[in-house]
Design a protein around this nucleic acid. Structure first.
Lengths: 226, 226
DNA sequence: AATTAGCTGTCAGTTTCACGTCAGCTTGAT
DNA sequence: ATCAAGCTGACGTGAAACTGACAGCTAATT
């Protein structure tokens, strides 16, 4: 899952980024409104965490323009405690949730997860496909009642494939979802992750099918059309 | 999705066309205002990318006449950087978005996508014909809820045929659509691709009919005139 | 500091398979 | 009957994908 963090406070910025990365998000961080606005014209995210007090272009303006372009990416805004007025204004402009500083890290993460859930899987914390159930809250994948032991990368890939189950996901899309802007990986790296994940999945009733030249898709074994 | 690109700069024209085609749009390109205006009187598009500086008839005039005919097709105009005045004029005339040169390719594509989403097409980038639904966003063809497993070439051909459903598509047009301009394929190659695609489609209620000497057309099986 | 263990990207050698070509056949028009 | 257009099974090729081995990195432990 790809997340954009727009925040100018140095300490907060670093702390949040590290924490999100650790939780398996691909995180881009930007500290001014102008840059954020520009970035958002051509880069899609799964969720945006937006501080309202920003240099150059206010968080309001960033949000307003994002919505004006027709995007419905979930946005969580961060406001100061006393700033009820602005909070309301933000929600009016199309923010999906807010959090007042100071806040608990765990709460922010929980709310971000909730936003992603709401946008993508119809509100459920769990995605099921075949034998497998992906639990987005604990970030683990279960087969029945036992948890698969997957690495962070494998987990992120499986999450993406399960979200788009039965749809073709291109390597470019995968790279985009697994990596933030400053760490790029090769196409081959994706192939390697797929290979490793396949090994761990081959006892179940699903498979990662290769569509040569286009990408991969998650399919149930029985649904083969030769 | 069908896109009209009106641009006279040779290099830009080719680059944009290739990029849009690669992203799965059916692209028509025309380089003068008069031709564009004429074309738009009888051909509908899902989105139009319009350069303002054009020979013969200015982009303004093309846009003005399009709106005068009552069309609400989304239009994105391209302007020179310093040309604020014209940009405003364009938006007044009914353009839906603008981009100043030079621009990022990714940004143009994102804005075009946004326009299509926002537009009258209701956001569903899907073409249906008979049993089949072609999902241009995910680039795959569904029969009910199962995805056909088609190769890249077969997919591209089917997309073209479905876009022009019930209309004759010449081999030349097909070759043009399947190949970028430095790799050419023989007419026979097209025949082979048609043959392979037919095999995969013959369980459904549509067929690829051969019109000897002219090309192919996609037709529903019941509509046979014997 | 050193060691260990697990994760992950790169590389290189191998395998796979989509697609264009070809050749021989079928169809249809005149 | 003749010829051109189209169809399709077979085949070779090269690009795409797979995967075992390895090395760099991080985090945890000693």
């Amino acid at each position: 899952m790809r997340l954009l963090l727009v925040e100018d406070d140095l300490i907060l910025k670093d702390g949040l980024e590290r924490s999100f990365v650790k939780s398996g998000y691909a995180v881009d961080v930007i500290s001014d409104g102008e840059g954020a606005n520009k970035l958002l014209t051509y880069q899609e995210y799964d969720v945006i965490v937006l501080d309202l007090g920003l240099p150059k272009l206010s968080g309001f303006e960033v949000l307003k323009r994002l919505r004006a372009r027709g995007s419905n990416t979930p946005v969580l805004i961060l406001t100061a405690l006393e700033d009820t007025q602005n909070r309301v204004k933000g929600l009016d402009l199309g923010a999906d949730d807010y959090l007042t500083k100071p806040f608990e890290l765990a709460e922010l993460e929980a709310r971000v997860r909730a936003l992603i859930r709401r946008g993508v899987s119809g509100g459920s914390a769990k995605i099921s496909f075949g034998d497998l159930t992906f639990d987005t809250t604990n970030r683990q994948c279960m087969a029945g009642d036992i948890a698969l032991s997957l690495s962070a990368r494998e987990l992120a890939l499986l999450e993406l494939l399960m979200l788009k189950a039965s749809k073709v996901v291109s390597k470019a899309k995968i790279m985009e979802h697994l990596c933030s802007w400053d760490d790029e990986i090769s196409e081959n790296a994706v192939e390697v992750i797929v290979s490793r994940l396949r090994k761990k999945l081959n006892v179940f009733d699903i498979e990662i099918r290769t569509i040569r030249g286009l990408g991969y898709l998650l399919a149930k074994l029985e649904n083969q059309n030769p």
